[in-house]
Amino acid sequence: MSIPLTKKDFVSDQEVRWCPGCGDYAILSQVQKLFPEFGIKKENFLVVSGIGCSSRFPYYMNTYGFHSIHGRAPALAAGAKITNPNLSVWVITGDGDAMAIGGNHFIHLLRRNFDINILMFNNRIYGLTKGQYSPTSEPGKKTKSSPMGSLDYPFNPPSLALGAGATFVARSLDREQKHLHGVLQKAYEHKGTSYVEIYQNCNIFNNGAFSDLTERETKMETQLQLDHGQPMIFGKDKNKGLRLNGSQFEIIDIGSQFSKDDILVHNKKDKNLALLLSDLTYQPEFPKPLGVFYEELKPTYEELLINQIDNAKVNMPTANFDELIRSSHTWEIK
């Protein structure tokens, strides 16, 4: 038996170069802490990224890593996973990387259901290029490239992922270390593509984008913890909850009129519910769902591929190259 790995084993010798106070540090630390818990050998991790502040991540992980080009990490990850299905593959991406330039690869990776984990650091801004609005920035956002306010309507990331056929959709926060740890653990355990949106503070170009959700004074009112089989209760006094009125959520107070039993119980296997929950992302009067929105089990791409190859090996003629190239009409010149 080899000595169990620790967090230290996953820290590379490269100096971390994010701005002091950047939310990326906390996520890095959580991932470095988590990896040794899986019992996987260090050489079997592959961390892949695109371009962006967030995408510097692989350099800081002492695993195999690939810092690729803007938006294209999902495709690179797919190729590596096909070549070596034993690898535990992690795609690190940003809101620009995954939803703007890489939108196409992002949705196609989800629909194919490789057993790959995507961690999208959503800071609702382009960090690396110094602060332009991103596909997740709020309408009207004033940035260097939108001095009069952005005209774009944003993507709603979990809805996009669900629409693309994702089999695991979750959300967490850089500041909630324990929560993040738990969500990443579940993402790892899910066999299939796991998509985790991580709200991440860019303290330089979009400071406080999620402060409602992270500040002690407000967070109990603004966070909605999703736990499979548990009622959707929130609030400082745990006295509020969600229930469905037709196909719309409404907030009810537990007390005289309603009891805990009136509150909707989360079911991560219900895709319609997951879609309704993700719709709360931009509704100011509702708390924001965190945790696992949705999980579905179906065969992964690489399982299906391995199956096809195995079948071909059994059902096709023996793989003899010389025979193959002689298998059409041949003639002899004497």
């Binding site: 195999y64 690939f66 495709a75 690179l76 590596a80 070549t83 690898l87 196609h108």
Partner: peptide
Amino acid sequence: IAGIMSTIGASFAGD
């Protein structure tokens, strides 16, 4: 783009 990116991943992984 995905076509070649997947081959780069595959090449890195040894195919």
